[in-house]
Computed example of a mutant assay.
Amino acid sequence: MRVLFVCLGNICRSPAAEGVFRELAREVETDSAGTGGWHVGEPPYGPMQDAARKRGYDLSDLRARQFGRADFDRFDLIIAMDASNLADIERQRPEHSTTPVRLFTDYAPGSGMDHVPDPYYTRDFDGALDLIEAAARGLRASL
């Protein structure tokens, strides 16, 4: 099983989701990407790395990359952090691709959230991690 986590810039939400999920499901191949290319090659945002590290997640080996059409062939499941990311992903879907694309919060139904808020803007890194951990547990249970 190969799972790709996608957000806007690939420096906060999706690398955090990848880091959390790879700890929960070591047998699953994970990656993360952004729909935009502004941060390609950069490590996750410092404050997100700090918040994740305090919870035991090491994101330091991750580097931002941009989502592309080939990801539909490379992954069995693509997880978007919000509806805008999902729409951007779907716009790139190849004609015959059947790879499922889901919102991450679909796996945290009790959260009351329909997206993972971007802590780059909200500055709530711990709140984002709380939701990411809940969704990661739900995703793990669904596999």
Rank of each mutant, 00 (worst) to 15 (best):
residue 9 G to H: 11
residue 80 A to P: 00
residue 45 Y to A: 10
residue 106 D to Q: 06
residue 46 G to T: 13
residue 51 A to V: 12
residue 94 P to C: 07
residue 20 V to T: 05
residue 111 S to I: 14
residue 94 P to E: 12
residue 133 E to P: 00
residue 41 G to W: 01
residue 18 E to N: 09
residue 94 P to A: 09
residue 28 V to T: 13
residue 75 F to E: 06
residue 134 A to R: 12
residue 106 D to E: 15
residue 128 A to V: 10
residue 10 N to Y: 04
residue 93 R to A: 13
residue 87 A to K: 06
residue 103 L to S: 01
residue 20 V to I: 13
residue 4 L to I: 08
residue 87 A to F: 02
residue 65 R to E: 09
residue 47 P to F: 02
residue 136 A to W: 03
residue 102 R to N: 06
residue 85 N to Y: 02
residue 41 G to A: 07
residue 70 A to I: 05
residue 46 G to L: 15
residue 136 A to P: 00
residue 17 A to L: 09
residue 125 F to P: 00
residue 60 S to V: 07
residue 74 R to H: 11
residue 102 R to A: 12
residue 81 M to A: 15
residue 86 L to R: 14
residue 11 I to E: 08
residue 89 I to A: 08
residue 127 G to V: 07
residue 61 D to E: 15
residue 100 P to I: 02
residue 13 R to L: 14
residue 85 N to V: 14
residue 133 E to V: 12
residue 34 G to T: 08
residue 34 G to P: 00
residue 105 T to K: 00
residue 43 P to Y: 00
residue 136 A to F: 08
residue 82 D to N: 10
residue 115 H to L: 15
residue 134 A to S: 12
residue 10 N to V: 11
residue 96 H to F: 09
residue 27 E to W: 10
residue 134 A to C: 04
residue 41 G to F: 04
residue 117 P to M: 01
residue 65 R to W: 13
residue 69 R to P: 03
residue 134 A to T: 13
residue 18 E to I: 08
residue 27 E to Y: 07
residue 44 P to C: 03
residue 135 A to H: 02
residue 102 R to V: 13
residue 121 Y to N: 11
residue 7 C to M: 07
residue 35 T to M: 11
residue 21 F to C: 08
residue 132 I to V: 14
residue 81 M to E: 09
residue 92 Q to C: 13
residue 26 R to H: 10
residue 143 L to N: 02
residue 49 Q to K: 12
residue 120 Y to C: 09
residue 113 M to N: 11
residue 108 A to Q: 04
residue 123 R to V: 05
residue 123 R to H: 14
residue 133 E to K: 02
residue 125 F to K: 05
residue 1 M to C: 07
residue 5 F to A: 13
residue 72 F to I: 08
residue 59 L to R: 04
residue 35 T to P: 00
residue 24 L to F: 08
residue 85 N to C: 03
residue 13 R to Y: 10
residue 89 I to E: 06
residue 81 M to Q: 13
residue 87 A to W: 01
residue 93 R to M: 12
residue 70 A to L: 10
residue 113 M to D: 12
residue 130 D to C: 06
residue 90 E to K: 09
residue 112 G to W: 10
residue 51 A to K: 02
residue 131 L to K: 05
residue 19 G to E: 10
residue 76 D to Q: 01
residue 137 R to G: 04
residue 79 I to Q: 00
residue 104 F to I: 05
residue 15 P to I: 11
residue 1 M to L: 13
residue 120 Y to P: 00
residue 129 L to S: 07
residue 132 I to F: 02
residue 113 M to Y: 14
residue 91 R to I: 05
residue 39 H to G: 05
residue 67 F to H: 04
residue 65 R to C: 10
residue 134 A to I: 09
residue 119 P to T: 03
residue 73 D to I: 03
residue 132 I to K: 06
residue 78 I to D: 03
residue 69 R to H: 06
residue 15 P to F: 09
residue 96 H to W: 03
residue 46 G to A: 15
residue 66 Q to V: 04
residue 39 H to S: 11
residue 127 G to N: 01
residue 78 I to L: 10
residue 87 A to G: 02
residue 75 F to C: 01
residue 51 A to E: 08
residue 26 R to W: 03
residue 132 I to S: 07
